Simulated scan of single mutants.
Amino acid sequence: MRHAFVTGAAGFIGAACCARLLEAGWRVTGLDAMTDYYDVTLKEARLAPLRAHDRFDFVQDYVETPGRLRGMFAGGRFDLVIHLAAQAGVRYSLENPRAYLDSNVTGTFELLEAAREFPPGHLLLASTSSVYGANDKMPYAETDRADHQMSFYAATKKATEAMAHAYAHLHGLPTTMFRFFTVYGPWGRPDMAPFKFTRAILEGRPIDVYNHGRMRRDFTYIDDLVEGILALADAVPGAAPVAGDSLSPVAPFRVVNIGNASPVELGDFIAAIEAALGRKAERNLMEMQPGDVPATWADTALLQALTGKVPGTPVTEGVARFVAWYREYYGV
């Protein structure tokens, strides 16, 4: 039986990945610090169905705890490692940058050290579309330069890409970095726009719309993202590149975008929430937030070449599923 290790297992993406791995017959070990960055009861609720599986083991701890991951890797070989644990959020990185340094950089270092000593079959690490920063060439391709990050969050994630490449080169670790594009859907994070907008509209409060709504995002539905991750799990970086590959010339390492390849105007996204709720939003138009970018757009040709599939859930459908989940979960 194949054994996967997932960090950030109680998180939005991590819990969804664990569920799909269990459905596919894997044994899964998950780790999460259960921090109070947002509602811990939501994290516990995500974990509840996972804990019901006899092939799921959960450990509560920080990825940056010295030696913690090494001890877990030493306990048995992992065929697949999916590293999702991180301090997320562009805006919070303005308030508490130390949390990003500790979790994202130091935590990833601890993971890489454990993998160096006890190599997994494939190491998958989460990055973000935010690393493209000030790039204005769209859609964003993995082979584009990404040197001008606009937030400390993005800078820490770009640092983890460089760190992982060095370890892949020095120690032959097969490594794939995923750059995620604005993931949303049921069980999502309360600090993200779909959650905040839905809650405010239902409570009759205005929603804050940054840059006066003149923003576009490549919204990616959670199920599509997880399917992309699992499909790429078997696309282990090797010596033979595919067309448009980001495969390193000196390491078994590549970067892959996972996005919907179809940017949506923020106003249209809000309209989809309004339609699903049957209520109109009162919009509080605001200036652009520091560290934010006006648009994101994924080039998914490499994902297509490697897996034969790309995300495609329309925003109207994905938003309707999120709103239905929100109403059921919160009883509203």
Rank of each mutant, 00 (worst) to 15 (best):
T296N: 02
T307K: 04
W325P: 02
A298D: 05
K280C: 07
F322Y: 02
T313M: 12
N284G: 04
G318K: 08
A324H: 06
T307C: 11
P290E: 04
R283I: 09
K309P: 13
L306H: 07
E317L: 06
A298G: 06
K280L: 09
A281S: 07
T316L: 14
A320G: 12
V323I: 08
D292Q: 09
M286E: 13
A305C: 11
V315D: 03
R279K: 11
T307M: 15
P311R: 02
E317A: 09
W297A: 10
A324T: 07
G308Y: 00
G312A: 13
R279E: 08
E274V: 02
A298M: 09
K280P: 03
D292P: 05
L303A: 05
A320D: 13
A320P: 12
V293F: 12
V323M: 06
G308F: 00
L277G: 06
A281M: 03
T300E: 06
P314W: 12
G308A: 00
M286L: 14
G312N: 11
R283P: 09
A301L: 10
A281E: 05
T300C: 14
L277H: 05
V315K: 04
T313N: 11
A320I: 15
L302P: 13
T313E: 14
L303D: 05
L303I: 06
Q289S: 15
A298P: 03
N284D: 05
A320W: 10
P311M: 05
R283Q: 10
A301S: 14
P294Y: 01
G278P: 01
E282R: 14
T300Q: 07
L302Q: 15
A298K: 04
W297M: 09
A295N: 07
V319W: 01
M288E: 07
R283G: 12
P294M: 01
A275P: 13
D299M: 06
G318W: 04
A305T: 10
D299H: 06
R279A: 12
L302Y: 12
W325Y: 02
V310L: 10
A281F: 03
A301D: 12
A275K: 15
W325Q: 01
W297Y: 06
G318N: 08
P294G: 00
R321Q: 04
Q289L: 14
V310H: 09
G312V: 13
V315F: 15
F322G: 01
A295G: 12
A305L: 08
E274C: 01
V319Q: 01
L285I: 03
T296A: 06
W325G: 07
L306Q: 08
D292T: 08
E282Y: 10
P294H: 00
G291P: 00
A305V: 09
W297E: 02
V315G: 04
L306I: 03
